[in-house]
């Protein structure tokens, strides 16, 4: 059963340049009771995210304009977002690149990795796990 997004529902942000991935993630998470912000332009994501104050961020690595890795380090540097768990959702096996970048900038590793293709169950599982680790209730 679908639930209406509530003011108290946990907020999840997804940044990906694939329109269909955004649609899929948004619908799947909204079906599970989350409030979702789907963003397709990483360069403009930071300000929106700081305003949205998500509880979990899902981030693609290979995007136009700005690569996910540099957005990740920006997120870790933001005073508002630095403690928000980030789950990498990518078809690219970029753990090494990400680890190098996060080590170089002092940002910690992401909360989780999801390798595309992802199904709805795996997606929800990863988001719920990240929320429980950060002490947030899940829908």
């Amino acid at each position: 059963m679908s639930r209406e997004p509530s003011l108290h529902a946990p907020r999840v942000a997804i940044i990906d340049d694939e329109e269909d991935v955004l649609t899929f993630v948004r619908i799947a998470l909204e079906d599970a009771g989350f409030t979702v912000e789907a963003l397709d332009r990483p360069t403009e994501a930071l300000a929106t995210l700081e305003a949205f104050r998500p509880h979990v961020i899902l981030l693609d690595l290979l995007m136009p304009e700005q690569m996910g890795v540099s957005l990740y380090t920006e997120l870790r540097a933001s005073p508002v977002l630095r403690d928000v768990p980030v789950i990498i959702v990518s078809g690219l096996n970029a753990r090494d690149t990400l680890q190098e970048a996060s080590a170089a900038t002092g940002a910690g590793p992401p909360a989780g990795y999801l390798e595309k293709p992802v199904d709805a169950a795996a997606l929800l599982d990863a988001v719920r796990r990240a929320l429980s680790h950060s002490g947030r209730g899940t829908p």
Binding site: T23, G91, K116
Partner: peptide, 19 residues
């Protein structure tokens, strides 16, 4: 990588359709 994105799109399409 290209195929993974497409598969995710297909996965999403199936999820949305079946829902």
């Amino acid at each position: 990588h290209g195929i993974k994105n497409i598969l995710t799109g297909l996965e999403g399409g199936m999820y949305v359709t079946s829902g």
